[in-house]
Amino acid sequence: MSILIDETTRVVVQGITGNQGRFDTELSLAYGVNIVAGVTPGRGGETVSGVPVFDTVKRAVTETGANAAVLYVPATGVRDAVFEAVEAGCRVLLATTENMPRHDAAQAVAAARAKGAWLVGFNTNGIISPGKCKLGGIGGSDPDAVYPAGRIGVVSRSGGMSAEIAWALKRAGLGVSTAVSMGGDRTTGRSMVEYLALFEADPETDAMIIYGEPGTENEAEVARAVAEGSIRKPVVAMVAGAFQEEYPAGVSFGHVAAMIVGEADTATAKRRLLASAGVEVAASLDEAARMVARATGSIPN
């Protein structure tokens, strides 16, 4: 098994006639992804790499049974594209766009959550369940080079670090059940701990690696879930960006934001919080891979 996407996932690509839409669609088809439809208003009836294009997501879903949407849409169009895909019944959405207007992001996330849909992003390069399915550019032209199938779940705030982690696992003789770049923006469709809960329930995932950064409450929520025992599988964490604490603050937060964001915001505070909850915290990729190998019994203590 895997989380969120697998062999049964039927993908509709919103914005399939744009450059990035076309490019990623070709790479995904080459990986064997079941892309059943594309959507660009006004281009219905065309095809892209053999994939039929529709004018609306609703039409695409009705005609093809698509259940997951990948959005290659400019920042100011993403909110409505999310609304459209959610209304049409897509259960998993991937929004690659970065630099979304904040209000749009908040509204899109709220709309997806209200319908129980799972929005991956914003600012993600994708999610991959190796050998089964992938959404987005993750893995590029050769996903097997860094994403061999296995039993480790990866949740990363950075698409690049998702690849580095999977590659480090590969060097340690391990593979990935599902790896997700959850989105690097402050507002994301789902939080890190929600992904871990899916991995916790997945019988084919033995342990998880998370990659976090300064800002947001994602890592604090993970620490709480592990401490409370709702996440029992081994979790190894990397949190980068401690160097920022050594320099005078370049960005001054408004004092309201500072008050409501809380103090657990720095990489060092997050590492400490995770460690005290029982999460193994690694300083480097190789160390993270070793910790996972040990926790899953792949190498002796």
Partner: peptide
């Protein structure tokens, strides 16, 4: 490059 990898390398 790649925000995350940049942070990690700086730390390292």
């Amino acid at each position: 490059a790649g925000g995350g990898a940049g942070l990690l390398q700086h730390d390292l």
